[in-house]
Amino acid sequence: MFKKFDEKESISGILQLKSSVQKSIRSKILESYPHLENYLDTILPKKDAFKIVKCHDHIEVLINSSGEQQFFRHREGQWMPTLRLLHKYPFFLPMQQVDKGAIRFVLSGANIMCPGLTSPGAQMTEVEKDTVVAIMAEGKEHALAIGKTTLSTADIAKINKGIGVENCHYLNDGLWQMKAIK
């Protein structure tokens, strides 16, 4: 999603959100990620003024008042956390672990192929198709990407070929490199 993203060219505008809109975004996020319940007030304080950065290709990035990117989404899809946010609260997305050999491919922006999730170094936690997941790696502590399953994990194991998780955001992509917006 952010492979070719460039903060100078890809941003089309910044919107200040009305408090009603802000409220509904908060509740949507909480609905998607119930584990954030006790932490959302720190991540997106009720009284803080968030903004939405509108980007090309129907991407929106939610930023807090100090300009840090917190969540993003494509079209009207589910809000997904940025990796920097996920690193602070690594527990609220289901985690899928790829094997060591897949790391370099994920970091180059490739989608996650089924065999990378089923080999001995890999490990999955059961989820349905179209679930937002954190991509972890064999032998590493922190997430390296955020993706969306294109198959259920049961099917990933069964079919074991082709794309299993769409790579939406990874370390050092355009969103990762985006500076805080003041």
């Binding site: 006790n38 690193h87 602070k88 527990f91 609220f92 985690m95 972890m136 922190h142």
Partner: peptide
Amino acid sequence: NRLRIGPKEGVTYPIQV
């Protein structure tokens, strides 16, 4: 245990990476 969803006991969040 590592991949389990939900806050871990004994860990203070946010984590500083």
